[in-house]
């Protein structure tokens, strides 16, 4: 049985801890940054990997995101978790764009995805290929649409969360998701040869 009071207290404590961590980070204190790093690095990494599909590139972008965040955290006003997370994603999004613009970057062999040993290597390869197809299908989407799909289907954010952090209405987010999924579906559908 779940004790709701404990759960609420824990959530409140976590919120307070995060708020204090943001304040400490804004004062340049390393322990505040440690808390933020532990909490948001996996999400930032997932966001970058969902966009890039390259582990090494995602790691570089994640690192660049936190380095850039150090210098720009003074601009962060809202210390609540969704706002802080959205702020990290905002930085990461532009770091991804910067990375893609540097198209001449050499791909390191070490950066290629080497899946962990699993019971069914074939399944892993298929998963990897499916993910690559989705990324390819997203090429023609707008940056906002790609951002939305990552939040919804990689980071598991609700429509309301996406709406609040992107300052859109739920209806607008839903509509954008519909158009984005339609475009992905069309791109994934094999074209018939006449």
């Amino acid at each position: 049985m779940i004790d709701e009071s404990d759960s609420g207290g824990s959530s409140l404590e976590e919120t307070t801890r995060l708020t204090r961590a943001v304040g400490a980070a804004q004062r340049g204190e390393a322990h505040g940054w440690s808390v933020l790093f532990e909490r948001f690095y996996p999400d930032v990494h997932a966001y970058a990997l969902a966009r890039l599909g390259d582990v090494t590139a995602a790691e570089d972008v994640s690192q660049d995101t936190f380095v850039a965040a150090v210098t720009s955290i003074k601009t962060l006003r809202d210390r609540r978790e969704p706002a802080v997370q959205a702020w990290f994603f905002h930085i990461c999004r532009y770091k991804v764009i910067d990375h893609l613009r540097r198209g001449s970057r050499d791909r390191d062999v070490a950066g290629a995805y080497f899946p962990r040993p699993a019971a069914d290597p074939t399944a892993i390869v298929e998963t990897h290929l499916d993910a690559a197809r989705v990324r390819s299908a997203m090429v023609d989407l707008t940056d906002d649409q790609r951002d939305l799909l990552i939040r919804r289907f990689v980071l598991d954010q609700s429509l309301e969360e996406v709406a609040s952090t992107t300052r859109r209405s739920v209806g607008a987010v839903k509509s954008m998701q519909h158009r984005a999924l339609g475009a992905v579906r069309r791109a994934l559908t094999p074209k018939r040869v006449a």
Partner: peptide
């Protein structure tokens, strides 16, 4: 079919960072 591919994309992206 699309859901499976999105799920694969999700699983591929949410790997534990090295």
């Amino acid at each position: 079919g699309l859901w499976a591919q999105l799920d694969a994309w999700r699983a591929n992206s949410r790997r534990e960072p090295r």
